[in-house]
């Protein structure tokens, strides 16, 4: 469509706002952060530089590698737990619930907690799992245990439970979406050809829903990897995660270049995961064409 030059200029003027805003306030800050990750700290100042010392330190100092590995482990466990809870739920909603009203209602019920403050949802687990918390005291008043168990709070299990609780809707949403998009005819065709429900799941539903699983897993993994509230509330001393480390570098430790290097690593990891996910989703979309 050809337009007069004045109109193009007006359009350009209007549209330069979002472009300029994004460039200046989003892209440049990310680049800035990457730049700072190469700087040197000369306490109490940070000096522009170009050296890889910060990265070397992150990969060589066990203080940091331990935390990075732990965070990876916890994020992976949360992702697995969310998948185990979320997939059957989505499957049930799409294939077992016949009533559309009921299906929408239960789906809403799964999504609604996302609207309730994330901080509060993490906090509730502190109330539940604490030494004097709801779970211990309930078990004691029921006579199941005599003394509070420390089993529940300030450990990694508590973090996995809390993070799974917070992020499981992010797993359900994309899986539900792909399952709902699988034509019902394919399942009927499979049964028509003599394959029972289990075989149909294995050969038809599972491969066709892989895209949603990948998207949900990516979301859950990235979000739980970057979480810093759960470690503070329920994690305890061996629960420090990458995000807490980041906080320290910009707070007490006052080492912005090192913190920026760590943040850049997280950024790179997320970009790689996003890239892989995009590739996997395109591959599965090609399948469903």
């Amino acid at each position: 469509m050809r337009r007069p030059a004045s109109s193009i200029l007006k359009t350009a003027g209007l549209f330069s706002l979002p472009l300029g805003w994004t460039l200046l306030l989003l892209i440049v800050p990310y680049l800035m952060m990457i730049a700072v990750s190469f700087w040197t700290r000369q306490f109490p100042l940070f000096v522009p530089d170009f050296q890889f010392g910060n990265y070397v330190q992150l990969f060589s100092d066990p203080q940091y590698t331990t935390v990075i590995l732990r965070t990876l482990k916890i994020a992976a466990m949360v992702t697995a737990a969310a998948l185990v809870l979320g997939y059957p739920l989505a499957y049930f909603l799409v294939f077992t619930l016949r009533s559309e009203r009921l299906r929408n209602l239960v789906y809403m019920a799964v999504i609604v907690p996302l609207w309730v403050s994330y901080l509060l949802r993490a906090y509730t687990w502190k109330i539940i799992l604490g030494t004097d918390g709801a779970l211990n005291s309930a078990l004691m008043s029921l006579g199941v245990i005599d003394a509070p168990l420390d089993l529940f709070l300030y450990n990694q299990a508590a973090m996995v439970i809390t993070l799974t609780y917070i992020f499981v809707p992010f797993m359900v949403m994309p899986i539900y979406a792909v399952l709902e998009n699988i034509p019902k005819g394919l399942i009927e065709a499979s049964e028509d050809l003599g394959i029972g429900p289990l075989g149909t799941f294995r050969h038809v539903i599972a491969p066709l829903s892989l895209g949603g699983v990948v998207a949900g897993a990516m979301m859950t993994f990235c979000l739980s990897f970057g979480d810093f509230v759960a470690p503070v509330l329920v994690g305890g001393p061996d629960g420090i995660m990458v995000a807490n480390l980041l906080q320290t570098q910009f707070g007490a430790a006052l080492n912005w270049p090192l913190g920026s290097a760590l943040a850049t690593l997280v950024l790179i990891m997320v970009l790689v995961i996003l890239g892989l996910t995009g590739w996997a989703e395109r591959a599965s979309a090609r399948n469903l064409r």
Binding site: P183, G185, L186, E188, A189, H203, L208, S284, L288, R289
Partner: peptide, 9 residues
């Protein structure tokens, strides 16, 4: 089937 329902994968 009417729309064939071929398995796309």
């Amino acid at each position: 089937f009417q729309d064939y329902a071929l398995f796309p994968h």
